[in-house]
């Protein structure tokens, strides 16, 4: 990933900043410029919204594939987490063993390193989840 491609998402990846539709009140993460339910009503009016970092596991898996960027983590846990503010987020679950994870388990987002080093030389940070 080149630096700008990563840099432009900083506030979303580092602080869980999504968007909120002023028309229907739905909260989105990742951010959207258009609310899929309110369409024109929402255009140009979507507001930044920082999510609370807590949620529950909606579903999860343990990945055994050889992904070049995540080889050292293998096997690692990936989950869809339903945040207490509404939206669901895909991320890794860390500081936990695969056999401890269950659907419905409470977790919180933490700031972690996602990749050691990308080919472009930058270290990419973002959110992962840990059990509460």
């Amino acid at each position: 990933m080149t630096i700008p491609r990563f840099w432009r998402e900083f506030e979303h990846r580092y602080r869980l900043v999504g968007t909120k539709c002023p028309s229907c009140g739905r909260v989105y993460f990742p951010p959207r410029d258009v609310c899929p339910y309110c369409h024109r009503e929402s255009v140009g009016k979507m507001q930044n919204y920082e999510l609370k970092n807590t949620g529950k596991i909606y579903s999860f898996t343990v990945v055994y594939q050889d992904i070049p960027d995540f080889k050292e983590l293998k096997p690692y846990i990936v989950a869809i987490v339903e945040m207490d503010d509404g939206p669901r987020i895909t991320g890794q679950v860390v500081d936990a063993l695969p056999e401890e994870i269950t659907i419905g388990m409470p977790v919180k987002a933490v700031f972690r390193r996602i990749r050691e080093e990308s080919p472009s030389g930058i270290i990419e940070y973002g959110y992962k989840f840990v059990p509460i």
Partner: peptide, 23 residues
Amino acid sequence: EWEAFNGSTLAASAAMIARRYMH
């Protein structure tokens, strides 16, 4: 940007669907 970046794959997506389906 929001699935694969964080370590998900198409197989991981299928697996999460399967787990929730069984649940």
